[in-house]
Design a protein around this nucleic acid. Structure first.
Length: 216
DNA sequence: CAGTGACC
DNA sequence: TGGT
């Protein structure tokens, strides 16, 4: 893939370090995209995107689904990982091989060997959708990193500290970028600013994000 | 408790 | 737009 192609799809090659154990792998997922897209449709066919409700009673602007043995879910009772999709009553769809392969290779590129995720949260952002600052802390242990794959429209990602009130840095995430954080950065607060409408040539006015985790 | 939103 |  040449640099003109990378620029057309919105990603520059290279790495950007955000912390001792946190980095953006620019365009890392681009070679996987043609395999990824049909797999999203397969997942969605079994477990459709839906807007979940937080314990505080707010409906999330991001629509989500999951694949893998465990899926992240929220309702009035709290956050948790489940083996069963509460909407369908069935297991979350299996994690497609290409998902696991991408997650493992990205983790390795960022310095985390043998990443074997059992959960993939799939988030769909339409214009205006956002995700407030939060920590990923429902996982059983924090040894494994978080691997986050961006597809479609650009997002402004916020990366903060270990306290919600710590200052944040903002970084644009483009189609094909993969963000990896673990180690001393594993529990840093992070979120996504409301998406601006900047249609993407492949996905149109949406952003799809995969977040891979070792949850169980 | 909270992955939100209102208000300054 | 950033902080509370």
């Amino acid at each position: 893939m040449n640099i003109e192609t990378l620029e057309f799809f919105g990603a520059m090659a290279g790495h950007q370090r955000l912390g001792p154990d946190a980095m953006v792998l620019r365009g890392f997922a681009l070679p996987f995209v043609s395999e990824l897209m049909p797999s999203i449709a397969d997942v969605e066919a079994v477990s459709p995107f839906r807007h979940m409700v937080t314990p505080s009673g707010f409906t999330m602007s991001v629509a989500l689904t999951n694949c893998g043995a465990l899926g992240w879910a929220t309702d009035r009772r709290g956050y948790r990982y489940t083996a069963i999709d509460p909407e369908s009553g069935k297991r979350w769809p299996a994690m497609p091989d290409v998902f696991a392969r991408l997650a493992n290779e990205a983790a390795t590129a960022a310095g985390f060997n043998d990443f074997d995720p059992d959960a993939c949260l799939v988030n769909r952002y339409l214009p205006g959708a956002r995700l407030s600052l939060h920590q990923d802390k429902n996982e059983r242990d924090y040894e494994a990193p978080i691997v986050s794959v961006s597809l479609g429209m650009r997002a402004t990602f916020m990366f903060g500290g270990l306290k919600r009130t710590d200052p944040t840095i903002k970084v644009s995430l483009y189609h094909g970028d993969v963000m990896v954080w673990g180690g001393v950065d594993r529990l840093r607060f992070h979120g996504v600013m409301p998406l601006k409408e900047e249609p993407h040539p492949l996905l149109g006015s949406q952003r799809i994000n995969f977040t891979f985790r070792k949850a169980g």
